[in-house]
Design a binder for these strands. Structure first.
Length: 186
DNA sequence: AATGGACTCAACCGCTAAGCT
DNA sequence: CAGCTTAGCGGTTGAGTCCAT
């Protein structure tokens, strides 16, 4: 089944960061052949990597159409909106953001947006709302599960700034009008 | 200038779905 | 249909970098 990589014998499998040489081997191989069949690709290309590792490296970093750099405010908003509808379905969210990878969006969500919500979810100034109840009535597509929207369990209470953020997310309002500083923390 | 904590993101791991024999 | 293999997904980790003190 899955390759274990650290068997006592057999071809050694490299782990950790990719070198430029490995990158160019993979890029050249895919340029001359095609992507897919990752295990045999890894072997044929002479890479001491698992197929899984090759696939990940290609999809998240080496693909020519991968966009790198800052997430734009429009993309921020789209991510929040899509996350409110799809939950942690990162690959599905990524399909709506050309050039962005599921890994990048997932990291972005956890480091920026999720943290932003966490930051304002303090115990001292709770906005005393059971969002699961409140927003079940506000989604225009009917009943919504706040758990998939925020990642927090049903019944979780949020401070006011986070409450506004979530409201913006669910109701599809322009985020910047509510949260002018945006979501970036640095 | 040194350093320790916070942050970011590439990469790995474990699981499941899909496809093949 | 069952068993096996492979691809794909989401969660997690850890090394490198940044920043405040």
């Amino acid at each position: 089944m899955e390759e274990k990589g650290c068997s006592s014998e057999g071809p050694e499998v490299r782990k950790g960061p990719w070198t430029m040489e490995e990158d160019s081997i993979l890029v050249n191989y895919i340029a001359n052949h095609s992507e897919g069949a990752w295990n045999s690709l890894a072997k044929s290309a002479g890479l001491k990597r698992t197929g899984k590792s090759c696939r990940l490296r290609w999809l998240n970093y080496l693909r020519p159409d991968v966009r790198r750099g800052n997430i734009t405010p429009e993309e921020q908003l789209l991510i929040i909106e899509l996350h409110s509808k799809l939950g942690n379905r990162w690959s599905k969210i990524a399909k709506h953001l050309p050039g962005r990878t599921d890994n990048e969006i997932k990291n972005y969500w956890r480091t920026k947006i999720h943290k932003h919500i966490n930051k304002h979810r303090d115990t001292s100034v709770l906005y005393n709302c059971d969002v699961s109840k409140q927003y079940k009535h506000q989604g225009d597509t009917g009943w919504m599960d706040i758990g998939t929207t925020t990642g927090y369990p049903t019944g979780t209470c949020f401070s006011q700034p986070s409450h506004k953020l979530i409201h913006a997310s669910i109701c599809g309002r322009k985020l910047r009008s509510i949260c002018p500083e945006g979501l970036t923390t640095r």
